[in-house]
Nucleic acid binder design. Sequence first.
DNA 1: CGAATTAGTCACAATGTGCGACAAAAGTCA
DNA 2: TGACTTTTGTCGCACATTGTGACTAATTCG
Lengths: 238, 238
Amino acid sequence: MGERRASGTRPAVRTTTVAVDVAILAPMGTELAVLVQAGGRAGAAGSAELPWDGIRPSDTLDDAADRIARAALGFAPAWLGQCGTWSDTRRHPGGARTSVGYLAVCPGSATGAPVGENGAWVPMSAQPSLMPRQRAVLDAAAMLVQSRIDQSPLAFRFLPAAFTLSELQAIYELLLDRKLHKASFRRALHAARLVAPLDEWRSEGRGRPAQLFQYAPARRRSVRRAVRFDLIAPTPGR
Amino acid sequence: MGERRASGTRPAVRTTTVAVDVAILAPMGTELAVLVQAGGRAGAAGSAELPWDGIRPSDTLDDAADRIARAALGFAPAWLGQCGTWSDTRRHPGGARTSVGYLAVCPGSATGAPVGENGAWVPMSAQPSLMPRQRAVLDAAAMLVQSRIDQSPLAFRFLPAAFTLSELQAIYELLLDRKLHKASFRRALHAARLVAPLDEWRSEGRGRPAQLFQYAPARRRSVRRAVRFDLIAPTPGR
DNA sequence: CGAATTAGTCACAATGTGCGACAAAAGTCA
DNA sequence: TGACTTTTGTCGCACATTGTGACTAATTCG
């Protein structure tokens, strides 16, 4: 003991095979959907896979994730963020020992259009059968959405730039999986000064036309609030 | 266009060199400190480094991080969590192209004892001069602490199992960098039913002895709360 | 035109938070 | 011993935030 380094040996880097795996999520109807592609062995059971690739010499991980998401979607995702990294022997479509997982978010309009030749949007509830490694990435991506909803404007990335407040509320209800009260939702939203009205209205079939808004956070007083003990979940996370 | 994969090529894994870098944080006096070790070239300016190592064939990343933290500290950290992964050309002590960053947390008692032959606790405000890659890891670790304070019992990991409420409040004040009101702090803490009193008191010099508590989250009603728009920061993170 | 439907707001009750005041239990020191 | 200091721990009130149902507004449908 008293050894400076792990187990008395000097630290040394090792070589590994690495892939970037991207879970691309978008709202579809009343729930989230994930974009999967047919695997290498088409027709085989459990052959769906998340879009993935290796990293190129000049790539950062963010570069690679953006490239993979663009290639799968045909356009850039509205948001990208890392959701974890794993290195183990679980199966991966490319046989990578190490996977860097990313979450990509895009508006619901994407789930209405076809995605390439072998892409498909699968509802999260349908539990697409992925290889174990990619299953871990998808689970972590879903967790990341949950943990970031209240801390970042992630919910807005599931919508186009201009949206109605009812659409925004529907996204929050989808992500949080519970009904919200319209008046409370709007009161809190406006108090936070996160959206600005556009001089534009949209009529969606019957009913009064809804005003369009855009995400436009205003400089707001950084009030010192209480410690939020009520948000603490028993497990300290991953 | 219409291509199924990135740039029309089939996806393929690549090889990279990888290190696990661990930012070990603990309270020291009134601020956080990070554990650094003297680098390979002792005495050289900017030679401090975070504990790091490669991954072993049977290691998961969590295994490696735990091993590295134990070796540096002499005991297991109270908490470990991934804070990000980077793959770029920034300098790293081991020359790794890819780094998996971890945050390790341990109680303040650690910062009073010596740490191995060439370890030292450096206050975060002192900005230890690390190589660029490890600087990124440390910054991400600090961000992770901030983002998890309200979502997980992370603050409790900076304390021993038994603690006084004043100690807990001091940790929160240190992490949030602001004074908290004692009565409000305790009211919210007890309302969340996160701690249980021990039948033990501790006298710290003068003043009334403080009762000791332990972290013991009780099953509490999962009240449906409002969407917390006020916590949303303008940037969607990382 | 009236019913149905969706958007948007209001008022009030219930709950939560900031904050000062104060009581309780110990040590310090004349 | 007894006043003074220091720290723990609680109470109560003013004020802010949130939950909820009721209400008005603007549009389509038949």
